[in-house]
Simulated scan of single mutants.
Amino acid sequence: MRIGVLGAARIAPAALIRSARVVDGVEVAAVAARDRGRAATFARRHGVPTVHGSYEELIADPTLDAVYVPLPNGLHAQWTLAAIAAGKHVLCEKPFTSNAAQAIAVRDAAAGTGLVVMEAFHYRYHPLARRMAGVVREGDLGAIERVETSMCFPLPRFSDIRYQYDLAGGALMDAGCYAVHCLRMLSPGEPTVTAAQAMTLRRDPRVDRAMTADFTLPGGGTGRIQASMWSSTLLRIRADVIGTRGTMAVVNYASPQFPSRFTLTVDGRRRRERIVGEPTYVHQLRAFARAVAGERTNLTPPDDSVAQMSLIDAIYSAAGLPLRP
């Protein structure tokens, strides 16, 4: 599979370039950026053989099988749709689109094409996420009463594009999309928002620097997500599930190739498990390549992305903030 990169994004080396070196049958074959010089520098640094002068030129390249979209949030839908129209498979960084309406448009465009369109929730492809989901689905904890997930990290540089409303920025879109997705994975069904509260930027009150949201879960349980890029909670990446028979606590569910902890308590018996695996991005790229080859390995397809973006829209509405444009 020959894949092209739209934009010389900072995430691309970790998310794609290094992973492609260890995933059989994958070659990062081309890159394009708004600044051709920047794309050329990226290509030299990372051994990418072809530099295109525009996103359109890369997408039209007949030698490419797939496109990786690590652009700012507000550009995801536009260029994913363009890649689909050109007959390319797409690995699109999270969040999939700016809002649910765009996610529906992408899903509908991909339907019936035979193309693989995958939202890059890399954590979902690691054995840790599989174990977490299995504990809940197999009933180890009994009936689920409470799910809490968080993704908080410090980003005090408010000029960063992740704080720009016109580019679909905000803590919920960047950090919080992980917490929302993990909550959905661990819930017995799709959650419903009951309340949300945002901490916003002074210079642009449309943009959240932190978000907390509460939910009801199918079966009568409750849930909460906490997300921030700048708040009193500087660093917290955690998932906790409480059931009628026990609890599950996971520290650093998002990047378990770094220090993480999985603790399960069932019927009063507590144990820790060490769940190993390659970096999450390697697992994700391997799943993408296998999906392109015809295997059913896409865990984050457009239908899932529509549900994800619908819940994010509902959180913004509950918090009294406008949907991302």
Rank of each mutant, 00 (worst) to 15 (best):
D174I: 15
C177Q: 14
R224F: 04
C92E: 08
V48M: 04
F215N: 11
H126T: 01
T244C: 12
L235G: 14
F153Y: 14
A289W: 00
H52I: 05
S260C: 14
A82W: 00
V136K: 01
Q102A: 11
L115A: 08
R269K: 12
G87P: 10
L167T: 08
E278N: 08
I59E: 09
G134E: 13
T244M: 10
A175C: 13
F288A: 12
G277V: 05
I144H: 01
R296I: 12
A85D: 14
F215K: 10
D208E: 06
A14F: 07
T194W: 04
L16A: 07
E138A: 14
A60T: 09
M1C: 06
P156A: 13
D24I: 03
R238S: 13
P72D: 09
V180M: 06
A210E: 01
L75G: 01
R184H: 11
V147C: 06
G134K: 02
A9S: 13
A109D: 09
P301V: 11
A307G: 08
L6K: 05
V90Q: 10
R131L: 04
A8G: 14
A66Y: 06
A314Y: 05
A196M: 11
H181R: 12
A198H: 06
P62R: 10
R137S: 15
R209I: 15
A103R: 02
A314M: 06
D166R: 15
R44C: 01
D140V: 09
S228G: 13
G176R: 06
F96G: 08
L321T: 00
G294K: 09
R206T: 00
Q226V: 15
G4P: 03
L201G: 10
A314T: 03
V282H: 04
V251A: 14
G53V: 08
V292E: 07
A39E: 00
G221K: 00
D24E: 15
T194L: 03
G53R: 13
N298R: 05
G268Y: 02
M132Q: 10
G277R: 02
F96I: 13
L323Q: 11
Y163D: 04
